[in-house]
Structure formats: structure tokens, C-alpha cells
Design a protein around this nucleic acid. Structure first.
Lengths: 225, 225
DNA sequence: TCAAAAGTGTTAAGTTTACACCCATGA
DNA sequence: TCATGGGTGTAAACTTAACACTTTTGA
């Protein structure tokens, strides 16, 4: 019985995080300019190794916390990357996760100390190992999820304008949307609540601030915007 | 540099296969009644351990081949299952895959020698470890994929009737479809080709046999049926 | 007073749904 | 001749897409 396991090899297991932020009408990824080997000087995703006492999902949460200081972040598995030579140093199997964070909320000191930077998703540099494939798959998975569920509110502050929400949808779908049609759809979804707050920072006239009501969403049947 | 890796623990890495087959208008899974420990006598998914010289994806293909004798099967990752105590014997991280096979095509001797059986997806027994969660997630992922791409043809023989195709869609979606509307949609998709062959086994009159044309599908923009 | 972003309805086109009967055949 | 599964069209309901001007206000 003991041999059942011990006949087989064991592997390091890493997690790598594709961290999405939304700012200036564009999606960005939080990437590290590595100050350490392997891959010193190259761009990479934030990663880490799974430890004995934690699940793979917990390792991903820990790694995200170590970089951003954030907990309770929307995070989902992208997939396993397990090619034999993907890490030239040692055999490492990695699980990629994507995270959606509010770009105003993270711990700037921590991010700076890791030498991490927000990079526009349309201007990504070459990345270490197979991290570019991870990013590609994360973009696909993120779009599919955003279609199925209103996950994208995790990228916005608690209060947001409809112009911000629309430009987020445009950034995710990579296509312009009609303003009147978009607002009509939003008005039909009662889980997107208009508040009495006005944001005067983006226009002289001011724009109404809206809020995502998760409870109402869970009670509704509408799955997308 | 060497310490970069060796500070961290290593883990066994398994793959587990959720194998879908379609027969008698119903989806079925190929499950093992285990003849060995751990979990002797219990029902489980077909699984195996990743070896030094193979990628995780290749390990899944190998394991599927060991059970069914099939290669070139449609297979996709479902996700990583990495809880600490999920396998009570040792710490094992597992990647689940789902496979869609033509239920007429597999190697019956191999399947018998593994003590594997086709079980209706709506009458599944209790399963070992976290295999029930794997199956639940595989069902969800399979449905989403089937919506996005015509993956389901992998479950059918090369030639099939429209009645078979419709009952497959009904089994996947768990809902009845209107025959005329379904056939109208099929007629609009030119990657589903009518052949001059007639299947006389299911009715006296006989039903035209159709075929999935992958090349036409790749050249078309239509993503679903 | 004007620049800049916010806000607002209607119509046509397209898609989806609902629905019932005849056909061909072998037993 | 009849039981069985195969095959076919239309109209109403609903959804999506296209489109342009007025409002508010601070500088």
C-alpha cells in the first residue's frame, strides 16, 4: 500500500497570478520586473510555491496577499501548466490563477518592494517561462466568466459611474458599445443600483454613482449585463 | 539559486479523468469499481500519477489510453484539486480532465480488466475522495464548452441522425428541444453535412445520416448549434 | 458662453419561440 | 393497414441594433 504512492515521483508545485486592474479605460496586469533568479531582469507574473500545510487555492491567495496586501479578492483558476521543461531550473508544475482587483485599493509599498508595475494589457512585454501562455488563457477565461457572471464589478470601486462601467465592458470585450443601449440594459438589471451620490470629478455636470448589489444579484435570474 | 527550489516541498501529482459517453439518449460516465487500495470496493474516477518524463496533459492522455485504448480523444482540463487532506493516504495534488468519447469505440477488454462500468450521469454512486466535486465541475465546464464550440460531436459516431444529435443536446442541456426549430438551426450550419446514407436501424422509414465537417466548421464563424 | 461629459426614446431588423400534421416503411 | 419514427413551414413575441440631440455646469 505504501508503494502505491512511493513508486511515483514528486514535484514542486507553484502558483502564478494574473492580476487584472482597470484604470484610465484600460485593463492592466500587475507584473514583476524580477530582482532575483531564475529570470533576474525579466518580466514575470507574481508566483510562489505551494507549502505542506496549505491547499493550492490557499497558496494563490497567500501569494496575492504578499504582493498586494489584499484579502477576499475575486480569484479563479486558469489552469495547470505542466510541461516538462517549462521551468528550466527544476521540474515545477504550476497552477495559474487570475485575480480581479480594484486598482485603487492595493498596498503601494508592498508592490514597490516587489518591483511590480501595472502594464497595459495591449502592451505587454515578453514574459518568463510560459507566463505569456498563462496570460493568454487567463484573458480568455476572464472574458468567458465576465459573460456568464458580473465578475467585473471586482475591478471597480464600490461606487462607479455608468461611463466607467461601460468603458470596462468595452475594455473586456474589445469593442465599442452603444451608450443608449448599454444604459437601457443597465436600467433593466436591478442589481445595479443608482445612488444619490454624484461624481463631479469627471465632468462639470457630474455623473450619478451606481453600486453593485450582490444580494439582489443572487436573487435575480439575470446572469449578465 | 539551488535553494530557491529546495526550500519548498514536493508533491505527488495525479490526473483523474471524467469520461463522458452518450448512449440510449443519456450521458454516462465511465467509472471504476476499485479492485485495489486506497478505496478498494469504492467507485472512483480513472486516475494515475504524473511521471518524470511526461507533461500533466500527457499523463491524462496516457491514463485515458490505459483504460480505453483510445488516442486522439477530445480532452480538456477541468481544474486542479489541491486541498491538504483530499487523499487521506498522502498529500496528492490532482488535475481533473474531462474526455468525450464515442461509446462504440473503446476497447472492451481493457475496460473490463479495470473493472470499469458506464453509469448514467443522473444515477451516479458516491465516489472516492473529492471525485464527486470533480464530476460536478466537469459537468459545468463541459456544458459551457459545448455552448461555445461543437465539441459534442466527439460523443457521436462519424455518421449520426438528427434525432440522435437532438437527444444529445437535450441530454447536455437537460431540457427538451423543439424538433422543427432544432432542425432549422442545423440546416443553417453548413458544417453539419447531410450524407446520402440512410440509417434503417431506428425506424422503418429510415433516417438520413449526417456528418460533422470540421474543416467547414473552422472556416465558418458560427460557434454553436 | 462654451466646451465637455451626462443623459435620454423610437423604430427597424433580426432572432427565437410556439405549434400540428403528413410521409415512408416493414411487420 | 397500421404503428413508428422521420420530416416539414409560418406567424407572433421578443430581443437587439442603429441612430442624434438636449442638459448641466465650471471655467
Amino acid at each position: 500500500m505504501q508503494e502505491y504512492y512511493s513508486l511515483h515521483p514528486r514535484f514542486y508545485h507553484a502558483v502564478d497570478c494574473i492580476i487584472f486592474g482597470f484604470s484610465g479605460g484600460e485593463l492592466n496586469l500587475l507584473l514583476l520586473k524580477r530582482k532575483f533568479d531564475p529570470g533576474m531582469g525579466e518580466w514575470s507574473l507574481m508566483g510562489g510555491f505551494v507549502q505542506e500545510d496549505e491547499s493550492v487555492d490557499d497558496a494563490a491567495k497567500r501569494v496575492l496577499f504578499e504582493l498586494t496586501g489584499l484579502t477576499n479578492v475575486f480569484m479563479e483558476q486558469v489552469g495547470v501548466f505542466g510541461k516538462v521543461g517549462r521551468d528550466p531550473g527544476e521540474r515545477v508544475i504550476s497552477t495559474a490563477y487570475y485575480a480581479l482587483i480594484n486598482i485603487n485599493d492595493y498596498d503601494r509599498q508592498l508592490v514597490e518592494s516587489h518591483n511590480a508595475h501595472w502594464i497595459n494589457i495591449n502592451e505587454l512585454p515578453a514574459l518568463l517561462f510560459d507566463h505569456e501562455q498563462m496570460v493568454e488563457r487567463a484573458k480568455t477565461v476572464m472574458k468567458v466568466q465576465a459573460e456568464l457572471q458580473p465578475t467585473c464589478f471586482s475591478l471597480l470601486p464600490e461606487y462607479f459611474t455608468l461611463t466607467q462601467l461601460q468603458s470596462l465592458y468595452e475594455a473586456i470585450n474589445g469593442a465599442a458599445l452603444d451608450k443608449r443601449n448599454f444604459r437601457k440594459r443597465v436600467a433593466e438589471r436591478d442589481f445595479i443600483e443608482k445612488t444619490r451620490l454624484i461624481d463631479k470629478t469627471t465632468s462639470r455636470r457630474g455623473a450619478s454613482l451606481y453600486r453593485f448589489n450582490e444580494e439582489k444579484y443572487n436573487n435575480s435570474q439575470r446572469l449578465k449585463i
